[in-house]
């Protein structure tokens, strides 16, 4: 995305031709439609599409929401590469020599209409890997008194995977997902590893069994295209190799989860006082010693009047 930063400062060509792949679910017809768009500096492909929709053709259907690379709704194949339309500068994909931008719906997802794809099975696969913390002590988990212990190093082990925005670009780039609808796909498998590797999670055996399915981790052949297109550098390709290796070693009796963290014990009052810095002065009328002897209680209901 450094490229995006640089191209945000660059001027795109004055006008670009946006060539949109369209699909009508009623007639089953697919066709390309070209629109001229006047650009401005900093215009994204999503902006260009919205301009077409506002000024030229209201019938174009697409999905977007946040316009800032957070919601993961606007994945499209732009000039042949799966990208987030809102994170793609027009100046990045169009030039004076070639002012044409092709926009297609994400591959490997059923197309509902035009650029709008159906994510139902994508989210079902995500759900299959149980993407939440599982503890044996559900009582404690439902009524927590403290948090589970996790060091910054332990957090880093799962941190990049936790940044996934479920945009589906990885699935769209995957050559296995391209022919196999059953394959869990890079997004779900990366999330499977994200929870398996989390020190706070206790269901690693259960999850490895989910990965050990015909449609699981062993169907990956490490083309790493998922990692190449992921806008958040989640690195699903790397996560799947760690998952597969853990799974195979586990089946050989050579791997088990090394550490599972416990809730932090509740903090006991130590009675220690933090001394005021010498230059600190109290407001007139405040008697610190008196307040220590008798803590001030503020009645919230009186504040409202």
């Amino acid at each position: 995305m450094a490229q995006a930063l640089k191209s945000a400062a660059k001027y795109p060509p004055k006008t670009v031709r946006v060539k949109i792949k369209r699909y009508s679910p009623e007639t089953g017809r697919e066709w390309w439609q070209v629109y001229e768009v006047e650009t401005y500096r900093g215009m994204t492909v999503l902006d260009a599409l919205l301009q077409v929709k506002e000024k030229r053709d209201h019938t174009i259907v697409m999905r977007y929401s946040c316009r800032m690379g957070v919601c993961g709704s606007c994945g499209m194949v732009i000039n042949g590469t799966p990208r987030l339309a809102c994170q793609t500068q027009v100046s990045m994909v169009a030039s004076e020599e070639n002012p044409e931008i092709t926009v297609e719906p994400l591959k490997n997802f059923p197309v509902v209409r035009d650029l709008l794809t159906d994510f139902t099975s994508f989210f079902e696969k995500h759900r299959k890997v149980k993407p939440y913390l599982i503890r044996r002590d559900t009582q404690e988990q439902e009524n927590p008194k403290t948090e589970y212990r996790m060091t910054p190093e332990e957090l880093l082990e799962i941190y990049p995977y936790s940044l996934c925005i479920s945009c589906g670009l990885c699935v769209s780039a995957c050559p296995v997902s391209a022919s196999d609808e059953g394959f869990l796909g890079p997004q779900a498998l990366a999330q499977l590893w994200r929870y398996t590797a989390d020190v706070r999670d206790e269901a690693w055996r259960e999850r490895l069994e989910i990965a050990d399915d015909e449609n699981g981790a062993l169907k990956c052949h490490f083309a790493a295209s998922c990692s190449a297109v992921c806008p958040k550098a989640v690195d699903p390709g790397g996560a799947i190799q760690m998952l597969r290796s853990a799974l195979l070693k586990y089946k050989l009796g050579l791997w088990k989860k090394r550490k599972i963290s416990e809730p932090v014990p509740p903090l006991e009052p130590t009675g220690e006082k933090v001394p005021l810095p010498p230059e600190a002065q109290t407001l007139p009328g405040v008697d610190l010693e008196a307040m220590e002897r008798e803590p001030v209680v503020i009645d919230a209901s009186k504040l409202l009047d």
């Binding site: 699909y23 042949g80 591959k107 190449a228």
Partner: peptide, 26 residues
């Protein structure tokens, strides 16, 4: 009707079916 938009087995033979920068692993 939804359009099934999957390249299928072609993705196993054509490494340039999508433009994927920085991806010699493909």
């Amino acid at each position: 009707r939804f359009l099934k938009n999957m390249p299928g087995w072609r993705a196993s033979f054509n490494p340039w079916i999508l433009k994927l920068p920085n991806n010699p692993e493909r």
